[in-house]
């Protein structure tokens, strides 16, 4: 068969691409569209480095077919900061030095932002369980958790 033609929305802009049926959304983002901010750490849904949201729902892009994105709203790390500046979580991760090598960071940003959208006042335990699918080998998680809690507090204050 011919490759699948997909029309979708990525970071607010319409995107069209061709993909094989068994090609993952992650492969489409990275290899077809050049959106390499989304990382592949395992390809099996165990590390969270490829976290993106689909219609607002947090998923691993390696565990979704590119063809399934038809008609969906995809958000990747490239869409988080705007011309107004960094998202508060990106800023907090920097202020807390919550990254070392930084390869898990795009996934942490996407997953953390999804948590704050769902629960603006999470406990430390809730943050830890929410992020259990985002492996970080460098930081020991401490500063990531603190950055998220700090960000949540600041965003609540602003509202």
């Amino acid at each position: 068969m011919a490759r699948n033609q997909v029309t979708t929305t990525i970071n607010g802009e319409q995107a069209e691409y061709l993909c094989d049926t068994t090609q993952s959304l992650l492969s489409v983002l990275r290899d077809e569209l050049g959106l390499t901010g989304t990382k592949e750490g395992c390809g099996t849904g165990d590390c969270g480095a490829c976290s993106v949201t689909v219609d607002g729902r947090l998923v691993c892009a390696c565990l979704m077919l590119g063809v399934e994105a038809e008609g969906k709203q995809i958000e990747t790390i490239e869409g988080v900061a705007s011309s107004d500046g960094l998202h508060p979580l990106q800023q907090k991760l920097l202020e807390h030095a919550a990254l070392q090598c930084g390869v898990c960071t795009p996934g942490i940003v996407i997953a953390g932002k999804a948590l704050l959208a769902e629960n603006p006042d999470p406990t430390e335990e809730q943050v830890r369980y929410w992020l259990a699918g985002n492996l970080c080998r460098c930081t020991g998680y401490d500063k990531i958790i603190r950055a998220l809690l700090d960000c949540a507090a600041e965003m609540r204050e602003v509202q």
Partner: peptide, 21 residues
């Protein structure tokens, strides 16, 4: 002091290019 790392923005926005990028 706890300054912001020079490569920080690249790392939190997905611009930083790793081996496979």
């Amino acid at each position: 002091t706890r300054s912001i790392r020079p490569d920080g923005v690249d790392k939190v926005t997905g611009r930083a290019r790793f081996g496979a990028d």
